[in-house]
Simulated scan of single mutants.
Amino acid sequence: MSFIPRTILQTIRKFQQTLNPNAETKVIEEFRATRRQTISSIHFLLILILVPLLINQLSRNFVITPLVEKLWNLRESDVFLNSSQEEKALAELKRFEQNLYFEARIGKIPKLSIEAVQQKLKEKASTIAEESKIDSINAVTNIFADILTAATFIVLILTGKQQLSIIRSFAGDITYSLSDSAKAFLIILSTDIFVGFHSPYGWEIILGSTLNHYGLPENKSLISLFIATVPVIMDTIFKYWIFRYLNRSSPSAVATYRNMNE
């Protein structure tokens, strides 16, 4: 690994190219190569994004969901996937009952008899049970569909190592072509989002949504432990990356980052 910053090496190479008598021809060839590289990168990137999404939707709608629904309906007694889902359903039913009595007391609806209240509660409970059943089926479907999507993505990565290296090279060229201020801005933006002062709120929303997506019960202790450890580890890795690599490849960007961050 060279101890000379990459920006200086690029400047030296560009200066040498200008002194070359065949510089114009090389520039044209480099432009064509860059264009082919860009087209190839965009093409493979679209494949990485669209193919897994397509597999996810097709498998979800035509294979996994019908199969899960069929198996779930064989067990008619199962409504809730976990205790958290059951607690939410009971809380919703309780709120509905309280709203009935409240609206009857303020005269918004006619006063209901005990039988009428029980009938409405029964109808609401059936609706909640059906909604919970659908949520449970969707959660199980999400697990299998996402596993299949991840497997598809991994297969594409393993079978397209050459295209992936082109994308990495293309992304690296774009990154190093940015100005120092732009690099510093992106660094500050990334760190503030993932490990900044307000990042715990974002992590809490992401983790809660993920648990709900897969039908897992909300675990406040697990979420708190994750927020207390993972951002710290990410911050340590990021600082090491700045110290180990960015200081050598783009010291001016590091200086700009430190000035902007002060």
Rank of each mutant, 00 (worst) to 15 (best):
I187V: 15
F170R: 07
G172L: 10
R168P: 00
D180Y: 09
Q162D: 12
T191Y: 09
S199Y: 03
Y201H: 07
H198Y: 10
S177K: 11
S190G: 03
Y201V: 06
F153W: 05
W203G: 01
G196I: 12
Y176T: 06
Q163W: 11
I188Q: 13
I187Y: 11
F185E: 14
G160Q: 01
V155Y: 10
I187H: 03
P200K: 01
T175P: 00
L178V: 11
K161L: 14
D180L: 04
G160H: 02
F185I: 10
S190F: 15
I154A: 08
P200E: 02
V155W: 08
T159Q: 13
Y201S: 07
A182Y: 03
I193W: 04
S165D: 07
S181P: 06
F170Y: 14
P200S: 04
I154Q: 02
L186G: 08
V195D: 00
I166A: 01
I166P: 08
F194C: 10
I205Y: 01
G202W: 04
E204T: 09
A182G: 00
Q163S: 13
F185C: 05
A182E: 13
I187P: 12
D180G: 06
I205F: 01
L164T: 12
G160F: 04
G202S: 02
L186F: 13
G160D: 06
S190H: 03
F185N: 13
H198I: 15
I187L: 15
E204A: 00
Y201A: 13
V155T: 12
F153M: 10
R168W: 10
S199W: 04
F153Y: 08
D192Y: 03
S181N: 12
T191N: 09
V155A: 12
T152K: 00
F185S: 11
S179F: 08
A171L: 15
S199F: 03
G160K: 04
H198P: 00
A182I: 15
E204Q: 05
D173S: 12
L189S: 10
D173R: 15
V155R: 04
I205E: 00
T159W: 06
G172Q: 08
K183N: 07
T191C: 07
L178D: 02
E204F: 03
Q162Y: 10
Q163F: 10
K161I: 14
Q163K: 08
G202Y: 03
Y201G: 01
F197M: 11
S177V: 07
T152A: 13
T159R: 13
L156T: 09
I187Q: 04
L178C: 13
A182W: 03
D173E: 11
F153V: 07
D192A: 03
I193K: 01
L189G: 00
G160A: 02
P200R: 07
D173V: 11
I166T: 15
L189C: 12
I205T: 03
S169N: 14
W203E: 03
L186R: 01
I206K: 00
S199Q: 01
S177P: 09
K161D: 04
E204H: 02
D173Y: 05
Q162S: 14
